[in-house]
Design a protein around this nucleic acid. Structure first.
Lengths: 148, 148
DNA sequence: ATTAAATAGTTTAATATCAAACTAATATCA
DNA sequence: TGATATTAGTTTGATATTAAACTATTTAAT
């Protein structure tokens, strides 16, 4: 009895926290999505370009690890970016299985222009939380994310 | 100078918090995804069935609002559930534009069987956080999610 | 009542997403 | 060196996802 009700409380708490976490992530994502759509980019495309912008040219595998997406997905997203002339693949001479992906001038211009807006949007979104609250949130999320 | 560096700190904090939030949400989602895949359900399909299980029969619109998905998406997900005989549409007699979606016996059996496992998985995932930490996380996420 | 506006759901077109099967290149190791 | 295993990326097949255009029905307004 006692045990059961304690468990139910534990489970209810966990489910509630999970739900709130998902809602927060989805609502923030949805905004970012709408925001990027005006630049004609999807979230994944932005993720790839942002990674290249901050890390420099990388293989598809490395990009996929960075943004937590499958290799098959990388093929598709990078195909679409390449079609638009925003990135280019270059066969690695060291390991001819790899493509090194890099931003084109056009891609670099676009991400340079968009990134500050994106930052401002996220900063605005987060501003409902104090600095301390943001740090707490980041710490708790990190703990959760580690369980991967 | 002063202003600029303060802003950078603020933005860096916001971006970091956003990143951690996304990572936590994605890693938890990815687990749920793998877990449900073994029952042959996608996350969205589970979301629809869970809503019907806890709320009772609902229109597609109501379900979509509950799980934060577009109406076009609902058409697709419910089509797939209906093909598998897990839910059924019934034209509402009160408003003939609406379909009322309800679980079939088969669907009810499936969700009854799966839901406890899902709960256990989420509870396990959350157990890296104390009760207080979970409550704090839920509270902060809720604040963020409200900005929708 | 007739018309106009709003609403529920579907369709379309484009991209995303994964797992699994596959190809090509590299690394291992016997 | 030659067979085997591993790795990077692609393809395939299925579902998801959205926005926007569309159909059918209901509500509102004149």
């Amino acid at each position: 009895m006692r045990k059961r009700s304690r468990d139910n409380g534990k489970e209810a708490r966990a489910l509630n926290t999970y739900l709130k976490l998902m809602r927060a992530a989805e609502s923030t994502t949805a905004r970012a999505h709408r925001h990027l759509a005006s630049a004609g980019l999807t979230l994944s495309q932005f993720g790839v370009m942002e990674a290249l912008y901050h890390l420099g040219p990388r293989s598809q595998k490395e990009i996929g690890q960075k943004i937590l997406r499958s290799s098959g997905n990388m093929t598709m997203v990078i195909d679409n970016l390449e079609k638009r002339g925003l990135v280019r693949r270059k066969r690695s001479s060291a390991d001819r299985r790899c493509f090194i992906v890099h931003l084109t001038d056009k891609g670099n211009k676009l991400i340079s222009r968009i990134f500050p807006h994106h930052t401002a949007m996220i900063t605005g979104e987060m501003s409902v939380l104090s600095a301390t609250e943001q740090e707490t949130l980041a710490r708790l999320c990190k703990k959760l994310g580690l369980g991967v």
